[in-house]
Computed example of a mutant assay.
Amino acid sequence: MTLVSLARSSRTTVGSIFQTVWSYRTYATSSQESKQAQPPITPAPIQESPLSLVDQGVTATGAATRGDTVSEFSSTLPQSRVPSATQLPQAVKKEVKKDLSGGVYLIRPIGVRSPPHPDDNTGIDKRTKEQKRADFTNYDKHLEKRRQLLKEFSKSYFAEVKEFGENLGKEWTAPKSYFKADKALYMPNFFGTTVASSSSIGTTSVLKGKISIVRLYSALSGEKQVNTYFASNAEAYGDVPVEKGYQIVDISVPESFVKSYISKFFEYRTKAKIGKTRQNTFFYGTKLPGDLNLSIGFVNKFAGYVYLVDKDCKIRWAASGPASDEEKESLQRSLAGLIGESASNVQK
């Protein structure tokens, strides 16, 4: 009985497996036949915008060949949608600055408002004991001195080097004409020694009563720049005849005590290259205190500056950095105008 039951169950299991395999084979065959009988599906055409058609080079007739030109299709587009030459990739041209100052002209007078004196900015403390005591206990005085020291030491040495490399000290372009006497400001006094004498003297005593071309610099690079305002080195360093009605004054301001000592040591070279009468007007000056340097635009010790100063020590014309042809003509024109103005005042 047990053997009969086992045989029946085995026959049932084998039959069920065979039936499952046969059903799967029938389903696979029918699926393949139905797939072959189904017609292929064609994709719907894509509606492209006019701009995409232009990008692909499609013509007005709808041809999809990329060899067709855009100009054939541009007739069907609005004028605002037609790509122009400026919309196409252009070669980037590097901008070259012809004017180192950036086109900044000096349109306002520079200088100080108070008339200078030969004993100004000597660096000698002439205060009395009472004044020193009062300043020592004055909190506002301490804050002002602290502000000046912070401003001086916060400026990096390499900042001026970088600025000089960018614009060669050309902070502004000289004006085309000189300033009026009633609007001009004064040239501050520089205190120092001359090539002819070791005695200290102020520049105001030399500038007073004469029309002067003042050349101001601290480094050799600045000296070379101020020479560009003259036709030749002979004119830049030579004697100026009295009948011309003006003088040339050089003010060399060494930035440190060491450079000042070196300049004095090689003073014999300066004597050899300048005229004999120029030795009395060649100064080794000291730094101006406070913000007086900024008042005359003397902001870069590597650059050179040229000023046209009248008989009253007023700055009537100023330039910085290397000279352009326009500035050379402006200097000579302004100099001739000041000489004529001085002559007319004398006749009156």
Rank of each mutant, 00 (worst) to 15 (best):
Q56T: 05
D120G: 01
V82I: 15
P50E: 01
E95Y: 07
S114V: 13
G57K: 00
Q47V: 06
L100A: 04
I110F: 07
T122Y: 05
H117D: 10
G57Y: 02
P39F: 00
D119Y: 12
T65A: 15
S80H: 13
T128I: 07
A37N: 00
G62T: 04
P43Y: 04
G62D: 04
K94F: 11
Q131D: 05
T65Y: 14
L88W: 12
I46C: 00
Q38I: 04
R108N: 13
T69F: 15
P115S: 13
L53N: 10
D68C: 13
S71L: 07
P116Q: 02
L51G: 05
V58Q: 03
Q131A: 04
L88V: 11
P116E: 03
S75K: 04
K126F: 15
A85K: 15
E72R: 02
T61D: 09
E95Q: 13
Q87K: 06
T61W: 04
R108G: 05
S84Y: 12
A134E: 13
A44E: 08
V54R: 04
G123K: 11
P118I: 08
P118Y: 01
T76H: 02
R108F: 14
K132L: 03
R133E: 09
T128F: 01
A64W: 11
A44V: 01
P43V: 02
N121M: 03
I124T: 09
R113A: 14
H117V: 11
V96P: 06
G111N: 03
G62L: 08
I110V: 12
V96W: 12
P118Q: 07
P118N: 10
V96R: 15
T76A: 01
E130N: 10
I46A: 07
S101H: 07
Q79P: 01
P118F: 02
Q56E: 03
T128D: 11
P40A: 02
A60S: 05
R66G: 13
A134L: 13
V96Q: 14
A134Q: 12
V96L: 15
